[in-house]
Design a protein around this nucleic acid. Structure first.
Lengths: 214, 214
DNA sequence: GTCTATACGCTGATAGAC
DNA sequence: GTCTATCAGCGTATAGAC
């Protein structure tokens, strides 16, 4: 689900060792450069937020001047959108891809995976809340993401309800919003006390409450 | 639960019209001034975050120069701590005060109240996530708040479990963290789409799942 | 207590040489 | 494409007159 306005982001990761010369111009090198910039920006925005992170920080990390960085991304805003779009390619947000896989399994699996990728949870948590301030460039991305996610989980819960596998009295719509909310909130607590919070356990608990065994 | 380090914040709101002269010096006026500064800072930090909000914004809002503001709060950090401490006096975080009151009733009541106070939810959501960046001055406040809240709800769920009113299989500790997480997360979604999200309903749903009727 | 003046750093972004 | 130089602005905080 790519945001249409984010035209900056690279298409697919190509082979690192560019054996054959690129068909038209030095696009391969440029794309590689862009990827490393986005990776650096990812880390900077995760650690300092959008407002707190500077282009200089990103440029230092990638080993280039701040003005050269602006050659690839004409503004800080564009860089943020590229980072957010790149995030989508990492995460699948717990939607089961394998039809055999349970919703709970997909969610728990994704939650466990996120724990292992440094910065993923931090970037998401920090930027999401920051985006409700001002005229933050990330607001549209997060608003659309929430709507999309709620629709996705609503479909999943509705399907379960049709099979009679949703606990009686549970509203699919509110359950969808609640699952997302629980996930987001538990990530925040986990960031502050990773050893005390069992993210996957809390998500599993909730889904075991809502979804009846097959 | 006042943070010990926040020595800045005023004690109790006094009568606005200071009829009798203050006993020692112009303390009353000064306190009033401090309160209006904190109120302005509350709004500014809610709308722009800590990093995004400037002392100039606060000073403009309260109608004084930025340097005069620093006379009352020697640094931006001190001002933030005063704002966070003031937040505690507004919110009770859904702990039942009346022993007759259900946990669910207390939570739902607080959630409904928070909706009516502009900026309360926004300030909390924005600053909480922002505090996990950098060496943000608010981190200690939110970390301690989470620990305190988890202990509080753990007690409540444990007491319910002793009465046999906790659904079998529910872990009181994870339920405490989950309730807080759900609350935080649903507030974020509500900020982005207030008309689509039923905060109180989601919280009620969760507690109805976890707590058995009396 | 309140102000002006100001120090001093950092910000994102532009111009233009190479 | 990459750089240096630079702009114009804003940030917090300090010094000191009144």
């Amino acid at each position: 689900m790519s945001t249409p306005s984010a035209a900056q982001s690279a298409a697919q990761p190509a082979a690192k060792s560019a054996a054959q010369p690129a068909r038209r111009g030095p696009y391969a090198k440029s794309r590689q450069r862009r990827e490393s910039i986005v990776a650096a920006a990812y880390a900077v925005f995760a650690a300092h937020g959008y407002r707190g992170g500077s282009l200089q920080d990103v440029a230092d990390k990638v080993g280039m001047s701040q003005t050269s960085l602006l050659h690839y991304f004409p503004s800080k805003r564009d860089l943020l959108l590229a980072v957010l779009h790149q995030r989508d390619t990492i995460t699948q947000d717990g939607t089961p891809r394998d039809p055999e896989q349970t919703l709970a399994d997909a969610v728990v699996r994704q939650a466990r995976f996120n724990e292992t990728v440094p910065g993923v949870i931090e970037l998401y948590t920090v930027l999401c809340a920051e985006s409700v301030t001002d005229n933050h460039p990330g607001l549209e991305y997060f608003t659309e993401r929430y709507e999309r996610l709620r629709r996705s989980y609503l479909r999943a819960f509705t399907a379960l309800a049709d099979e009679g596998r949703l606990r009686p009295g549970v509203d699919p719509g509110r359950a969808a919003a609640s699952l997302i909310a629980l996930w987001d909130g538990i990530q925040t607590q986990w960031l502050m006390a990773p050893e005390r919070i069992d993210m996957a356990g809390c998500l599993r608990d909730y889904l075991d409450l809502v979804v009846l065994p097959a």
